[in-house]
């Protein structure tokens, strides 16, 4: 194959826009919530597709998820990815980021063995349901490849990668030897839409492979819940902040901001509430 082979990791996440409070019990309703591709991963797919369009090669989208995630893989192929791999197994359930990244890294190794050399692995910045931003870095560690995050632009030449990454106050340029791992800055690009012919291809050619642990042959002590050393020690819910329902008709934005600031800080109760919401009970 001429060009580069790029693997993109996407996560099939619950559509958090559809998760809401039950007005009677005040608890979260997650029931029947459908899933979507983690929105930031669309930017990762877009970056990979741009690299392929510029240099040739192929884009393989990969997800570790239960079987309904095929829908998301079809969407990715609809956007133009060449093929997709669903990594799924009962024993993978309950994984923390360590176990997830381990499976993904081993799956990338298997791509190298069975499909061919992988030049680049691309991830999203973070997920909307867990947002640890661990996966990219951990996959890079398992593979022993260099890792660059917050990537805004990427180009390839002669076996090396050049990227522009954007931090809060600086823009940096890096060069790294391939193979490498990057994660793409949130909202860096404009993800392309699903196209008719690509989606048709997803539905007819079905370029989607499924790998279970039979195919990967990983030690079950290293995957899923068993392979996950992270434990949730304690969960604290922040107190709900009651609204004061003040309405101010501002003359202009500057005046509005001044009014807001004055009100937030001059009222003792409001100041307390802000402090408690930020630092917990008893901090005022």
């Amino acid at each position: 194959m001429a060009g580069y082979r790029v693997v993109v990791g996407i996560k099939w996440v619950p559509n958090t826009q559809a998760v809401r409070f039950d007005p009677k019990t005040g608890t979260l309703i997650r029931q029947g919530v459908p899933a979507i591709i983690n929105p930031q991963d669309l930017h990762a797919i877009e970056m990979a597709l741009r690299l392929r369009d510029a240099y040739g090669g192929e884009v393989i989208v990969i997800t570790m998820a239960p079987p309904p995630a095929v829908q998301g893989l079809e969407h990715a192929i609809g956007m133009g990815a060449d093929r997709a791999i669903l990594v799924t197994d009962r024993s993978f359930a309950g994984a923390d980021t360590l176990a997830t990244s381990y499976v993904l890294a081993r799956a990338i190794n298997k791509v190298e063995r069975e499909i061919g050399r992988v030049d680049l692995a691309v991830f999203g910045q973070e997920t909307i349901d867990s947002s640890t931003a661990h996966i990219g870095a951990q996959v890079a560690s398992w593979l022993g490849w260099p890792y660059i995050y917050y990537v805004k632009q990427a180009s390839l030449s002669n076996g090396s990668l050049r990227v522009v990454r954007q931090l809060e106050d600086v823009i940096e340029e890096y060069e790294a030897k391939l193979p490498a791992v990057i994660s793409v800055l949130a909202k860096a690009l404009r993800p392309r839409h699903v196209s008719l012919l690509n989606k048709l291809r997803a539905r007819t050619e079905r370029p989607i492979i499924t790998w279970t642990n039979k195919d990967l042959g990983l030690d079950t002590r290293c995957v899923g819940l068993k392979g996950s050393p992270t434990i949730v020690a304690k969960v604290t819910y922040l107190p709900e902040v009651p609204r004061l329902k003040k309405v101010h008709k501002a003359e202009n934005p500057r005046e509005a901001a001044r009014w807001l600031l004055k009100n937030l800080l001059s009222d003792e109760k409001t100041r307390d509430l802000i402090a408690r919401a930020l630092w917990g009970e008893g901090s005022a």
Binding site: R83, E114, L197, L200, R201, T204, E205, R206, P207, I208, I209, T210
Partner: peptide
């Protein structure tokens, strides 16, 4: 490997 199916119709 995989379930590569029909060709894309034109």
């Amino acid at each position: 490997m995989g379930d590569v199916g029909r060709k894309v119709p034109e």
